[in-house]
Simulated scan of single mutants.
Amino acid sequence: MTHDDLEQLIARTAMGERSAFGDLYAGTSAKLFGICLRVLDDRAEAEEVAQEVYVKIWRHADRYRVNGLSPMTWLITIARNTAIDRLRRRREAQPGLDVAETLADPAPGPEAMAVQGGERAHLAACLGELNANRAEAVRRAYLLGETYADLAARFDVPLNTMRTWLRRSLLQLKECLTR
């Protein structure tokens, strides 16, 4: 599966397309399961974590940002971090481990905060290039979690028109963010 194929499948998954999610699963599940298995060294637990990974992907596909990095890297990061979180919980249940070994600071560091600030400004500028209604629909769908049906009613357009607005807006944002 190519870089572009994965990006398209993630974008379509973000719009709630089950068939795209199925194709994404079919194309990536062996790799992501392998990562979970390597981290956890327990097949049954790795299967559970792989399921959690795909639930996260389904729920957060809209958070994938086209930033020049491989979409597979994004997927692998989700799998690896979910498996590590499970491993930490397993260790916490075992007595005798130093607490400092099992805890990580959840707050982003200074570098991450600076990068996020720059990305936020870039995204805001790209949203500014969209038609005002479409930008508002994107914000409501992907930042506030409104459904397509709610958005269609709010903007007084048919449901399929709203889906088209969002799909085209995401493609336009993708193009802008890669500049």
Rank of each mutant, 00 (worst) to 15 (best):
E17H: 11
V53I: 02
R63E: 08
V55W: 07
G117R: 15
C36W: 01
C176Q: 06
Y54R: 01
K174M: 10
M72I: 05
E52H: 06
S29Y: 06
R89H: 14
K174G: 15
A137K: 02
T161G: 02
L170C: 13
A141K: 15
A132Y: 08
R18N: 11
E175Q: 13
A14G: 15
L75G: 00
R167I: 01
R140M: 12
T28K: 04
F21Y: 11
H122C: 08
A114Q: 13
G68P: 01
V55H: 07
M113N: 11
T73E: 06
G145E: 02
R167P: 03
E48A: 11
R179P: 03
G22D: 14
T147Y: 02
A83T: 02
M1I: 10
P108Q: 07
V138Q: 00
I76K: 14
M1H: 09
T2S: 15
Y64T: 02
N81Y: 05
E129W: 06
W165N: 02
A61M: 00
W74I: 05
L75W: 04
D23S: 12
A100V: 11
E175D: 13
A14R: 03
L143H: 10
P106G: 05
W165S: 01
R80W: 06
Q94E: 15
S70D: 13
G22Q: 13
L127I: 04
R140A: 14
S29E: 10
E136T: 14
M1R: 08
R154F: 06
F155H: 05
C36H: 01
L159Y: 14
M72K: 07
M113I: 11
L32V: 05
Y64Q: 02
G96T: 04
R120Q: 15
R179K: 12
F33A: 03
L171M: 08
A132F: 10
A112I: 06
L6N: 01
D42F: 01
A107E: 15
G27H: 09
C176E: 04
Y142N: 02
L143E: 13
F155D: 01
M1P: 08
L75V: 02
Q172W: 00
A93C: 07
E119T: 13
M15R: 13
S70I: 06
R65N: 11
E47T: 05
A14I: 00
R43G: 02
F155N: 00
L75Y: 07
L177E: 08
E45S: 08
L143D: 12
H60A: 06
E146W: 10
A132I: 14
N131F: 07
D42S: 06
A26L: 12
R167N: 10
D98L: 14
G145Q: 04
E111L: 15
Q94S: 11
R120Y: 10
T28F: 04
A104P: 03
G22P: 00
T164Q: 14
F21A: 15
L97T: 11
G96I: 04
N81K: 08
M1F: 10
G22L: 09
R134G: 05
E92D: 10
A14S: 13
D98R: 12
A11R: 15
F21M: 15
A125C: 05
L144G: 00
L171E: 14
E17F: 07
C126P: 05
E101S: 13
R88M: 12
L151H: 01
L123M: 15
G118N: 13
N81P: 03
L103N: 07
M162Q: 03
G145N: 00
